[in-house]
């Protein structure tokens, strides 16, 4: 972080125990390109952090490091005190159970119906009875405003519904952290805003930590407590939401000038 606004975001840093996710000088090279270039980022417990940035600046790659789908080439990624470079096996599985991840198109298993998709982590990793699982699935679908669609197949759902079912699946294990990878991508403005409202609602009701990767300012307005702008693999702006929206940082203004909102 080199800009004044980024430094301002670092002011009043939370104590170490308040930080749930920490990136320290993380470098990731993919296809010969430095996608993450010395990334420093902290996510505090209970906050909703929105990560913005142009395409190809490493937003999704950042999320994938949090769940161990990718490993940093150098630097460290810590999640609740666990170094993601050294964690493995059972410990990693247990950490992942505390994290929900919403993929861009929901990543639903195509041959399972909605109910089975949402129930999947419970059936695979818990000893809950069928009735308990059914009850919890129904509750989570209710939470994402899709009650009673358990028997539908993923192919029968719209893009927005697929994302919400993916969110219900991410929520079914009561995670402490939810990572959203472009939750509004490819959706019409109305559905996009509905998703934003659900994310904020969950944040307030469930007291979870959220990291949202998005291109849309509407998402920032509805969801964020804090926003960062990622450019060329590092954070260039890190501000609370209101200051982020008012900021006159040149890179931020240039990026927001292209915002489809």
């Amino acid at each position: 972080m080199t800009t004044a606004s980024a430094k301002k975001g670092a002011e009043g840093r939370a104590t170490r125990s308040d930080v749930l996710i920490r990136f320290s000088k993380v470098v990731k090279v993919l296809g010969g390109r430095r996608v993450l270039d010395g990334l420093d980022l902290e996510v505090r417990r209970g906050e909703a952090l929105v990560v913005m940035g142009p395409s190809g600046t490493g937003k999704s790659v950042t999320l994938r490091h949090v769940v161990g789908l990718m490993q940093a080439d150098s630097g460290t990624v810590e999640v609740d005190g666990h170094d993601m470079a050294t964690i493995g096996g059972r410990e990693l599985s247990e950490l992942r159970r505390r994290i929900g991840y919403l993929f861009q198109d929901g990543a639903l298993i195509n041959w399972l119906d909605v109910g089975e998709n949402v129930a999947l982590p419970l059936r695979e990793n818990t000893k809950l009875s069928d009735s308990e699982i059914r009850e919890r699935v129904a509750q989570r679908l209710e939470l994402v405003r899709l009650p009673g669609i358990e028997s539908k197949m993923p192919s029968e759902l719209s893009g927005g519904m697929r994302k919400r079912v993916g969110l219900a699946r991410a929520l079914v294990t009561d995670p402490e952290i939810i990572l959203y990878d472009e939750p509004n991508a490819g959706l019409d403005p109305q559905t996009s805003q509905a998703i934003n409202t659900i994310i904020r609602d969950l944040q307030d009701r469930l007291d979870i930590t959220s990291v949202v990767v998005t291109h849309l300012l509407s998402c920032v307005r509805t969801v964020a407590d804090r926003c960062v702008l990622l450019d060329k693999g590092s954070i260039v702006v890190d501000l609370p939401k209101d200051e982020f929206l008012r900021s006159d940082d040149a890179r931020l203004r240039e990026f927001l000038g292209k915002d489809p909102d």
């Binding site: 994938r64 769940v67 789908l69 599985s93 992942r96 159970r97 994290i99 991840y101 993929f103 861009q104 198109d105 990543a107 639903l108 298993i109 195509n110 999947l120 982590p121 695979e124 990793n125 993916g166 699946r169």
Partner: peptide
């Protein structure tokens, strides 16, 4: 390519 395998991994499904 549609991230379903990644989803299984994150959900701790073998």
């Amino acid at each position: 390519v549609s991230d379903e395998l990644a989803a299984l991994e994150i959900l701790s499904v073998d």
